[in-house]
C-alpha cells in the first residue's frame, strides 16, 4: 500500500523543504558569492594555505602542509637591498589556498587583477610558489590582489626561505592548524560580538575578510577573551610563551589548560626539557618555597609551541 494515500502530503513535504532550502541556501549564496576579498582575506588565505583542519595532505594536523610567511629585506633573485616585503612561501608540494585554485572566490576586480597582473594561474604546486599581496586598479576602482612572484620576479621558494632566515619567518599558517587541533577555539572565539568594546577587542571583521579561509573557527562557547585581534593588544612573545607553558604564571586566576606539551622534547638551545623537574619547582613556587617560578624554556624553531605563538601574535 506504500505511501499512496499520502501522495499530496509527500509532495507538500518536498515543496516545503525545498522552499526552505531555497531561502536559506540558494538566496544567501548570491550575496556571499558577490563578496569581494579585502587585503586581510588575501593575507589570511596566503598565510594559512589550503585548509587548517583535516586534509589528506595533513591528516594528523601537524601543520606540515601550511605555507611560511617571511619578511624579505633583500631581493632573493638578485641579492640587492630593498624595502621590506612580506612574502608567502609555498614550498614544492604545499597545496594552494582557494583563491589561487579558484580565483573566482576572490571576487570581481581582485580576481581579474590576480590573474592578469599577478599571473597566479601560472603557479604550480609541484614547483611551489611565492606570493605577494599588492594593490592595483581595475576599471577605475582600487582592489588588493595576489602576485605570483615566482612568475613575475623569478623568486623561488627555497631561495626566499634562505634569504629571509628563521628570524624573519612566521609559522602562523602551521599555528592555525595547531589552534584548530588543540581546540583553542572552544573557548577563544575569533569573532567579537557586534556590540563589544571595539577599543579592547578591536573592530569587528569586515564582510570580505574571510574569502578563502577554512575553517573560519569563529567559535561559539566563549570562556575566554576573543582573539580576533589579540596580536594588536599584546605583542609580547615572552608573555605568550609563559602563558602557553603555564597560564597561571602570568594570570593566577586563568582556567586555561597548560600547553607545555607543545614544546616537544628539546628547547631552542637543543637542551632536553625536564618537565618533571619543572613541575616540581613550580609547585614549590606555588607553596611559597621559591621566590621566582622556574624559567620557561624557549620553544625550538620547529616546535608546535613556536607555530602557535606565531599564529596568535599574527592576529591583528
Amino acid at each position: 500500500m506504500a505511501f499512496r494515500e499520502y501522495k499530496i502530503g509527500a509532495v507538500m513535504f518536498g515543496v516545503a523543504l525545498s522552499l526552505s532550502m531555497f531561502i536559506t541556501l540558494v538566496m544567501p549564496s548570491f550575496n556571499i558569492i558577490s563578496v569581494g576579498s579585502t587585503a586581510v582575506a588575501l593575507d589570511k588565505q596566503l598565510t594559512y594555505g589550503y585548509n587548517s583542519g583535516f586534509t589528506f595532505s595533513d591528516p594528523f594536523l601537524t601543520g606540515g602542509a601550511a605555507p611560511h610567511r617571511v619578511v624579505l629585506r633583500k631581493d632573493p633573485a638578485s641579492g640587492a637591498d630593498m624595502e621590506p616585503v612580506t612574502a608567502y612561501v609555498f614550498s614544492a608540494g604545499m597545496p594552494f589556498p582557494s583563491g589561487i585554485l579558484h580565483p573566482a572566490v576572490l571576487g570581481e576586480g581582485t580576481d581579474d587583477l590576480s590573474v592578469e597582473q599577478g599571473r597566479i594561474n601560472e603557479a604550480s604546486v609541484e614547483q611551489g610558489a611565492v606570493f605577494l599581496v599588492q594593490h592595483g586598479s581595475y576599471n577605475g576602482a582600487e582592489y588588493p590582489y595576489i602576485e605570483n612572484a615566482t612568475a613575475t620576479r623569478g623568486w623561488l621558494p627555497d631561495a626566499v626561505l634562505t634569504a629571509a632566515g628563521d628570524a624573519n619567518t612566521s609559522y602562523a599558517g602551521a599555528g592555525k592548524v595547531i589552534f584548530v587541533r588543540e581546540g583553542c577555539w572552544w573557548c577563544h572565539t575569533l569573532l567579537p560580538e557586534q556590540t563589544q568594546d571595539f577599543q579592547y577587542f578591536g573592530a569587528p571583521p569586515y564582510l570580505g575578510d574571510f574569502n578563502g579561509e577554512s575553517p573560519t573557527a569563529f567559535g561559539s562557547d566563549r570562556k575566554a577573551p576573543d582573539l580576533l585581534r589579540v596580536g594588536a593588544r599584546n605583542s609580547s612573545k615572552e608573555w605568550m610563551m609563559m602563558h602557553f607553558f603555564n597560564p597561571r604564571l602570568v594570570q593566577p586566576h586563568s582556567i586555561m589548560p597548560r600547553f607545555d606539551y607543545l614544546w616537544g622534547e628539546t628547547d631552542a638551545n637543543g637542551n632536553k626539557i625536564d618537565y618533571t623537574a619543572w613541575r616540581k619547582e613550580y609547585l614549590e613556587y606555588r607553596r611559597g618555597e621559591r621566590i621566582t617560578p622556574p624559567e620557561v624554556p624557549v620553544p625550538a624553531p620547529g616546535s608546535e609551541a613556536r607555530y602557535l605563538i606565531d599564529f596568535v601574535l599574527n592576529l591583528k
Partner: peptide
C-alpha cells in the same frame, strides 16, 4: 564545505 572545500563565509554559514 568539507567535501568540496567551500571556504570563508560559506563555510561558516553552512557549519
Amino acid at each position: 564545505p568539507e567535501y568540496f572545500h567551500l571556504t570563508g563565509l560559506t563555510e561558516a554559514y553552512l557549519t
